[in-house]
Design a protein around this nucleic acid. Structure first.
Length: 254
DNA sequence: ATGGCTTGAGTGTCAAGA
């Protein structure tokens, strides 16, 4: 079973890249973030023609998440239960016995801002929900754009980013809070190249200089760890014309 | 130098991203 995540920064713009990527990698599930559309603009038919059904939790202009799958899904959940939030950031479903949770975690804008407080509250609500979810679904994967670089090795210039948004200690503590539920960062189960990142700023030739951050992650619960064969960041789509600023991350489960 | 791109909305130019 292959599961993947990709912040596409507008599905309308990126649909050709997504269709190519699905054909090349044939994931069983692909979690998308920042679809930036309501259902009426969502390309259900094109994805269906490519062999994928789609669950979408979208809104106009901002945010929006989707879960694409080849097989049947059940127990669909939109948003974090009990957490009042206008922003469409979560969709989850069960697929082949695995609870697949797709999240677009808040960016937070700047340490100390209102959006930063929302980000930390959002992570607390997510963590509380997943603690319960793991009881019901021991095999669980949380995929998405976490907007957190968990460690200095996930940052091209740790000194410049120190205590900045995406890297601050409270954000990293929120990430560790997810690990404390018994989840593992699948990327770090394997030896990886140094300077591996999943996002590069559009500006300043960020990608060409590999000035990036690793903020897109696939966390997996303990029963899935022995099944995990690989986890890789695919930089290829970032090299295309009009790329997303994020690269997809894909994990293979036996 | 708080800039540098990209997107959606909407037709002038701004919010938001990370």
């Amino acid at each position: 079973m292959r599961i993947a995540t990709w912040n596409v920064n507008s599905l309308k713009v990126r649909l050709p890249h997504v269709l190519d990527w699905l054909a090349t990698h044939e994931p069983d599930a692909l979690c998308l973030q920042e679809t930036k559309t309501e259902d009426k603009g969502f390309p259900f038919a094109e994805l269906e023609a490519a062999g994928y059904r789609a669950l979408h939790n979208g809104q106009k202009t901002y945010n929006g998440v989707a879960l694409l799958s080849r097989g049947e899904v059940s127990d669909v959940q939109r948003d974090i239960p009990g957490f009042a939030d206008e922003q469409k950031r979560v969709i989850a479903a069960t697929l082949d016995g695995v609870r697949v949770v797709c999240g677009y975690m808040p960016n937070g804008q700047a340490v100390g801002s209102d959006k930063y407080a929302y980000k930390l509250a959002w992570f607390a609500a997510l963590t509380d929900w997943l603690r319960e979810e793991l009881v019901r679904y021991p095999k669980l994967a949380l995929l998405g754009d976490y907007n957190i670089a968990p460690d200095d090795r996930d940052v091209h210039d740790p000194a410049a980013w120190k205590d900045q948004i995406l890297c601050s200690e409270p954000e990293r503590a929120a990430f560790r809070g997810l690990l404390d539920l018994g989840l593992s960062d699948s990327f770090r189960l394997f030896e990886q190249a140094e300077k591996s990142y999943s996002w590069w700023d559009y500006r300043m030739l960020g990608f060409r200089r590999n000035q990036g951050l690793r903020i897109d992650h696939i966390l997996i619960s303990a029963p899935l760890v022995p099944l995990c064969r690989t986890c890789q960041i695919d930089k290829a789509p970032r090299k295309l014309e009009r790329p997303s600023d994020h690269a997809p991350v894909i994990a293979e489960l036996a």
